[in-house]
């Protein structure tokens, strides 16, 4: 019996991380999931919500729900913060007891971040991946705290053949992205990013892995600025590097 997963690609991955998305498709298909892509999707509205533009956030949420509301099955995304937006904040954007709120709750209930989908829904931790490198993990805030996904990414990493997981000294500390925060208070964002980059370099890892495009853009930029050879990868890139498909 085939499981269907609607791809919720997120605006950031759409614009900046096509390989992560392609990797997600090939991985899910290899695991027997039927993948669909509602092409009318745009942005979940999180940047507006986090900046206080509730009206605009509601408009984007309505659009998102219109697109995904007419689908069936799981909705799967490679971004913890976007899934957190849908699951925890969408219902509050609509009047209490309204049909829109009920729809938001129903659709939110089948929306999953990809590591939680793999581990908790598909009950898979070993996807046959191979990545013989020293890797350290940055726990993205919304994934960790909003979605309580402390174990799932680590469970997947532990099952990757040849991978050595080195603890990151400030693993659960925010990297300083914070969406609009990075442009409202750039000095503070920079200081936080630099603290994360220093810890990554000190860990001795060859790559840092995270599950959120925003964190990755921030950290990758910081590593490049520091002329560091450490690569910043999405967990999906590790899971589909070798031994996996594509």
């Amino acid at each position: 019996m085939a499981i269907t997963a609607q791809l919720f690609i997120t605006c950031l991955a759409d614009q900046f991380f096509p390989n992560v998305l392609k990797g997600m498709v090939s991985l899910l298909e290899r695991l027997g999931v039927q993948v669909a892509f509602p092409a009318e999707q745009t942005c979940c509205g999180q940047p507006f919500f986090n900046s206080g533009y509730r009206t605009q956030a509601r408009e984007l949420a309505a659009q998102w729900l219109a697109v995904f509301g007419r689908t069936e099955g799981y909705i799967v995304s490679p971004s913890g913060s976007c899934v957190d937006m849908v699951r925890h904040h969408y219902p509050s954007l609509f009047p209490s007891g309204s049909p829109e709120q009920r729809q938001a709750q129903a659709v939110a209930a089948r929306t999953f971040e990809v590591t939680q989908f793999l581990v908790n829904e598909l009950k898979v931790t070993d996807v046959g991946a191979r990545f013989p490198h020293k890797v350290t993990y940055h726990a993205s805030c919304h994934l960790l705290r909003g979605l309580s996904a402390r174990e799932e990414p680590k469970a997947l990493l532990h099952s990757v053949k040849g991978l050595t997981l080195i603890p990151l000294s400030n693993e659960e500390t925010c990297c300083g992205f914070g969406g609009v925060f990075s442009v409202i208070y750039p000095e503070v964002s920079q200081a936080m990013m630099e603290a994360k980059v220093r810890a990554i370099e000190a860990s001795g890892a060859e790559a840092v892995v995270a599950c959120d495009a925003g964190c990755l853009m921030n950290i990758a930029g910081g590593l490049r600025k520091a002329h560091s050879p450490v690569r910043a990868l999405h967990l999906l890139e590790v899971l589909t590097a070798e031994g996996g498909a594509a």
Binding site: A13, D14, F16, F17, V183, M193
Partner: peptide, 16 residues
């Protein structure tokens, strides 16, 4: 303000 702190990744809208 972003690039004060670090470079921005290039746009790569290749998925669609």
């Amino acid at each position: 303000r972003w690039t004060l702190a670090r470079p921005f990744p290039a746009f790569q809208p290749g998925f669609r």
